[in-house]
Amino acid sequence: MIATVADWVGAGCLVGGALLGLAAAIGVLRFPDALSRMHAATKPQVLGVLLLLLGIALRLRSPADLGMVLLVAVFQLATAPVAAQMIGRAAYRSGRLDRGLLDADELAERGSGGGSAGPA
């Protein structure tokens, strides 16, 4: 009984995660500039992967697999924002952004020319 429910919920999670991944891919393709694309590459993509992992965990249900799934989830959450930040920063510094789409740019107002050595 519980196994059947877990299987079905897992199947639902797999489909939902796949759909979010698809939406993220469409976003990466359709958004007008690099910064907007990074939004698509972080939020729906991360949630999609998490849902896929939840679905996999619900269907496999063995401790060894759960450990691996947990590990993938943690690293996904930890690395996706960092990767997006590196790409976004590179895009900003090399001027690959559409200023016509920006309502404000307080980073340009800082005026130091982006020479700071932040913790990358």
């Binding site: 939004h39 939020k43 976004g88 900003y92 700071s116 932040g118 913790p119």
Partner: peptide
């Protein structure tokens, strides 16, 4: 709905 671009430590 936000994304980090730059950090001023």
């Amino acid at each position: 709905g936000t994304l980090i671009l730059e950090v001023d430590r």
